[in-house]
């Protein structure tokens, strides 16, 4: 370990993080309302889950920019694709499990083969839903990143969620974002953070272990990072919000600058971020060992998110212990 770094501790190199954490109780409510106020060609679409995706202000105050197709996700996605083909910008919202599992063919064929901007926001992704298995889409990133030319973004907090959606409305073709709802920690400083498609963000800089994370996984990795810093274990943390098109060069540079890599994601450890980083390093060869943390080949339990995370060793303490264990 680098003594100077160990003494200095792990730092936020770009000062992207807010010092004092607060929580946004309904990020998408404001994000969608502000977007619709600015862009009159945007239509926020629901499939009977507007309340549960926190599409409240648009529905109440800008009803001409809200369309509910009822409890019909295949129709949500394919009607949205039609709306896109008529020159408007649909933002189809539902839970990630329904968008991907029930309407994957519509995402791929109706949205994924054409040039018109077609956005899908999948809420309560991974284990961020108390209802186990059927509501927990822990494979959505892998499914959508397998679609050629699709864009896949897993933001970590309200700041990059907002900025990513602002970018998405001008991207061609299918854009899949994971959404945040309910009390979401404000982590990135909106004054300093600027979302750019494909860019990665170094949130902590150290030596030895490099943590690569996305979405909720970045939130969790930051909790672990605080504990690791307190324990004097130097490490780095890279936030990768853009899963596709991925910035292979930045991820490779980060990976080869560390002795070991740990990926942290709110997703199965296959097909998602861990696989992505592994693919990049494997293509080059001779890279560091990569340990993938997330949902292993198992169903997650239901319940509160803290409980589920603890059960899976994805709570801050559990992650810190697992990462620390790798260095010995």
């Amino acid at each position: 370990m680098n003594d100077e770094m160990a003494t200095y501790g792990t730092r936020d190199p770009a000062m992207l993080l807010i010092g004092e954490r607060t929580f946004d109780p309904a990020p998408f409510d404001a994000i969608s309302f502000d977007l619709c106020s600015r862009r009159k060609d945007v239509v926020i679409m629901s499939a009977d889950l507007s309340t549960y995706c926190q599409v409240n202000r648009v529905k109440a105050e800008l009803p001409e920019q809200h369309l509910d197709v009822g409890m019909a996700e295949q129709n949500l996605i394919s009607v949205a694709a039609g709306i896109a083909k008529a020159g408007l910008v649909p933002v189809a919202t539902t839970f990630a499990c329904y968008a991907t599992r029930r309407a994957y063919d519509q995402m791929m064929i109706c949205m994924g083969t054409g040039p018109n901007t077609s956005i899908v926001v999948g809420f309560t992704p991974g284990i961020a839903n108390p209802a186990r298995i059927h509501h927990q889409a822990a494979e959505d990133l892998g499914m959508v990143r397998a679609i050629p030319n699709a864009t896949v973004i897993d933001p970590m907090d309200p700041t990059d969620f907002r900025q990513a959606l602002d970018v998405a409305v001008d991207l061609p073709g299918l854009v899949y974002l994971r959404g945040h709802r309910g009390d979401t920690p404000r982590i990135l400083d909106p004054e300093r953070f600027s979302f750019e498609l494909g860019r990665t963000y170094t949130l902590r800089e150290g030596t030895g272990i490099g943590i690569v994370a996305t979405g909720h996984g970045t939130q969790w990795a930051l909790e672990a990072s605080d504990l690791l810093t307190a324990r004097g274990l130097s490490h780095s943390l890279l936030h990768v919000p853009t899963i596709k098109p991925v910035n292979e060069a930045e991820i490779a540079e980060f990976a080869y600058a560390h002795d070991q890599i740990v990926t942290v994601e709110n997703h199965q450890i296959v097909t998602g971020l861990g696989s992505l980083v592994t693919e990049i390093v494997s293509d080059i060869g001779g890279g560091p060992r990569i340990t993938r943390l997330g949902l292993p080949n198992t169903w997650a339990p239901g319940g509160t998110l803290p409980y589920i995370r603890a059960e899976l060793g994805l709570d801050g303490e559990g992650l810190a212990n697992r990462i620390e264990g790798l260095s010995t």
Partner: peptide
């Protein structure tokens, strides 16, 4: 107007187009 090999997806895309054209 659409990629139509996966059957049953035209009516909803046409409905989306119709809805959006009317809205415009």
């Amino acid at each position: 107007e659409i990629t139509a090999g996966s059957l049953g997806q035209g009516p909803s895309q046409a409905a989306g187009i119709a809805w959006a054209e009317r809205k415009r």
